[in-house]
Amino acid sequence: TEYKLVVVGAGGVGKSALTIQLIQNHFVDEYDPTIEDSYRKQVVIDGETCLLDILDTAGQEEYSAMRDQYMRTGEGFLCVFAINNTKSFEDIHQYREQIKRVKDSDDVPMVLVGNKCDLAARTVESRQAQDLARSYGIPYIETSAKTRQGVEDAFYTLVREIRQH
């Protein structure tokens, strides 16, 4: 089974770092803004072998026109913010609204991801993020692309959301 996953969120929150940590098991430290990259990885989730087709997208506003296209083809979405960047957390709402509009559905598989949880300088409390996820009816997972904490959990949870859909 193949799953088309799309990673969305503001610029600099760590979308590529999360994806590369999942696929290649290493942490990319330097920031190089993405336009669009796709990665494929075969994994076993709950005993089922599946192929993850992951689209890593641009957070930069100037590429926002490309969003409709990949939102149409994606089956599930990782909505990523950084726990030390309140603005990126506030941006999640717009991504969710755009996904709902493009998919013409209120019920699209999504996982809210709070990345950079290895950093002490948190400005978005776990509780705020949990409340937001609960209001959307989606899971919330904290990750660190640096330490790998929660990385597999985030992507695998999204696959489970798609399966249950």
Rank of each mutant, 00 (worst) to 15 (best):
D37S: 01
K116V: 15
D46S: 05
A129Y: 10
E61C: 14
E161R: 09
I99A: 04
V113M: 12
Y140L: 12
V111P: 08
E142V: 11
E2K: 01
I20T: 01
D104G: 07
F27E: 10
D32V: 12
C50L: 04
V8C: 09
A17F: 02
T34M: 00
E161Q: 12
E75I: 05
L52V: 12
M110Q: 01
L78D: 06
L18D: 00
R67Q: 13
E161F: 03
V8Y: 14
Y39R: 00
F89K: 01
L158F: 04
G11M: 15
E36K: 02
T34Q: 01
F27A: 06
S64V: 07
T19G: 13
D104M: 13
Q130R: 08
Q21D: 15
R72T: 05
E97V: 04
G14H: 01
L112A: 07
V13D: 08
D107W: 10
Q128S: 12
E48L: 02
D68Y: 05
V80S: 02
Q69D: 07
Q149I: 06
A10M: 06
D29S: 04
H165N: 10
L112E: 08
V151Q: 15
E161V: 12
A65P: 09
P33A: 14
M71A: 03
D68M: 01
V124N: 13
E90T: 04
D107A: 04
I141C: 11
F89N: 00
I92V: 08
G114A: 11
V159M: 15
E30G: 03
L18Q: 03
L18A: 02
E161S: 11
S126L: 11
A82R: 03
I45H: 01
Y136I: 12
V6R: 04
E161T: 09
F77G: 02
T49S: 07
S64T: 07
I54M: 05
S144V: 15
S16W: 02
H93M: 10
L112P: 06
M71D: 14
N84T: 05
D56P: 03
V6G: 05
Q21R: 01
I162C: 04
P33K: 12
T19Q: 13
Q69F: 02
D46G: 08
F155H: 08
L51T: 06
T1H: 02
S88V: 02
V108Y: 05
T73A: 08
Q69R: 06
D32N: 11
K146A: 14
G11C: 15
L158W: 13
K4R: 04
R101M: 04
S105P: 03
Y39V: 03
A10L: 12
T157L: 14
E125D: 08
H165T: 10
V108C: 02
R160Q: 12
